[in-house]
Design a protein around this nucleic acid. Structure first.
Lengths: 119, 119
DNA sequence: TTCATGTGCTTAGTCTATCAAGCGCCGCTA
DNA sequence: TAGCGGCGCTTGATAGACTAAGCACATGAA
């Protein structure tokens, strides 16, 4: 009950990294996650890396983000958004009212202003 | 710098809960998340609840899990299918980055949640 | 040989999500 | 009036994600 070398997520990530012929430090440089942490994830010591980190790795390794989410034990969106017939809040970006459009425009301006200021 | 009390995720979740006429303790009972924690999420004190919790809430409140992920700032798996009918509304801005699009989607959710509550 | 650089790994610490316990405030009903 | 049960909220503690620093081993030059 103690030794967990069997982390499917860890093994999967290690395979993907080696397939790309990348060292832990190369990955650290590429995605901004410490090699120490990556090592622990691959060895199964860390069980649930955040979606943010999984997303970065999925892009680097060119594997499906959904798969990593699933392997990490996070709920995967498409899986059961179909199962429950929850009304989608955005049925698609499609029908946006004039008011909403105006607010979104303002908000986008705000986002860009803020981004320009930091960094 | 930031003492942010305005959390879009928090307001959205509060709107959804009140729309269902549920107390924090009722939600606690339903999904197994402490009312203390729910209170902090709604007030914006907690920034990034785990996908697992967001998923449970999305089912209870009958809102899209993807939307909650987005509001919480977690990467959302790309639905490549909707790439094609990207919102015409934003054409005037030229290119919108993925990040920006995600923030706009989140903000739209917030707008609509707020409208629903004041109605 | 010696030095330099790259590798995976360990450890100590920080930060934050999450919970258990308990507070004070209401609206009841006896 | 007292008391009860539900309400939102605060606080202290715990667990686990994540990093900085450094260790030990390897390779390959000078």
């Amino acid at each position: 009950m103690n030794e967990n070398t069997n982390s499917i997520l860890g093994e999967f990530l290690q395979s993907a990294r080696e397939a790309k012929k990348l060292s832990l430090r190369a990955v650290e440089k590429a995605v901004g996650v410490s090699n120490a942490y990556l090592s622990q994830v691959e060895s199964g010591k860390i069980k649930q890396p955040s979606p943010t980190i999984l997303h970065k790795l999925s892009e680097l390794y060119e594997v499906a983000y959904n798969d990593l989410l699933s392997l990490a034990g996070h709920p995967v969106p498409d899986d059961d958004s179909r199962e429950s017939n929850a009304p989608r809040v955005f049925d698609r970006f499609g029908d946006i009212s004039k008011d909403e459009e105006q607010e979104l425009v303002a908000y986008l301006a705000f986002l860009r202003a803020r981004k320009g200021r930091n960094e």
